[in-house]
């Protein structure tokens, strides 16, 4: 996985968040506070502003810049969570110009660990962690198979899609959705949805 693909990934992600802004906000209106699409779009617009300054730096610098930018522009719960994800992910691949499958696993694992430390989610709380936990597990299982990053991501995308759909019947126990109690059942989690787009766009960028 080369740096150019990471830059392409980030641009695609910006596009997707812009396209899905209303959809994400509607998902959030159903069980949260109706700002997730607005926040992600604002955050990635800032990332796109910052990207030219670091596009010629190493991968870790790019990822850390994404993290710092999201942390200081998204707000809400997703700001610290995604900010921490990209920041920790970047720190895990310090000095790299390209990522092997092992590097990629290390990056995702460190990022998800950051989400876990910051938000302290439990599996089944109906959060983005319910998408990332099975994705990390699937990545770990496959990482030793000799797949390159593209094959790895393509292989785990169905796992992510299933994990996303699996958030629908869950009752939220974290975030504003938790105040709905049983009324949160039957809605797809907005944070898990924006996380799914990260993997979907990565798959496109690597194709």
């Amino acid at each position: 996985m080369h740096k150019s693909q990471i830059l392409d990934w980030l641009r695609r992600l910006d596009q997707v968040y812009t396209e899905k802004k209303d959809y994400l906000t509607d998902l959030d209106a159903a069980i949260g506070d109706a700002d997730h699409g607005i926040n992600m779009t604002r955050g990635f617009a800032k990332v796109m502003e910052k990207l030219p300054e670091v596009a010629d730096k190493d991968i870790a610098t790019i990822l850390k810049t994404v993290g710092m930018t999201l942390m200081s522009s998204v707000g809400g719960a997703s700001g610290p969570l995604y900010g921490t994800f990209w920041l920790k992910g970047g720190l895990a691949v310090d000095g790299k110009e390209a990522l092997s499958a092992e590097d990629f696993l290390r990056m995702i694992e460190a990022g998800v660990d950051g989400i876990r430390q910051r938000g302290r989610p439990e599996p089944g709380d109906k959060t983005m962690y319910d998408l990332w936990a099975p994705v990390v597990a699937a990545l770990k299982t496959r990482a030793g198979n000799g797949d390159d990053v593209a094959a790895l991501v393509a292989a785990i995308l169905p796992v992510a899609a299933k994990a996303l759909a699996d958030t629908i019947p869950l009752q939220a126990r974290k975030g504003r959705a938790s105040y709905l109690g049983e009324r949160s059942i039957g809605h797809q989690d907005p944070g898990a949805t924006s996380s799914y787009y990260m993997l979907e766009t990565l798959n496109e960028a690597l194709a």
Binding site: D33, A34, D35, I38, N39, R42, M71, S72, S73, V74, G75, G76, A77, G79, P80
Partner: peptide, 12 residues
């Protein structure tokens, strides 16, 4: 102050 109904950020 954050955006409307959105938490402010740590840098603020």
């Amino acid at each position: 102050p954050g955006e409307v109904f959105t938490s402010p950020t740590p840098d603020q």
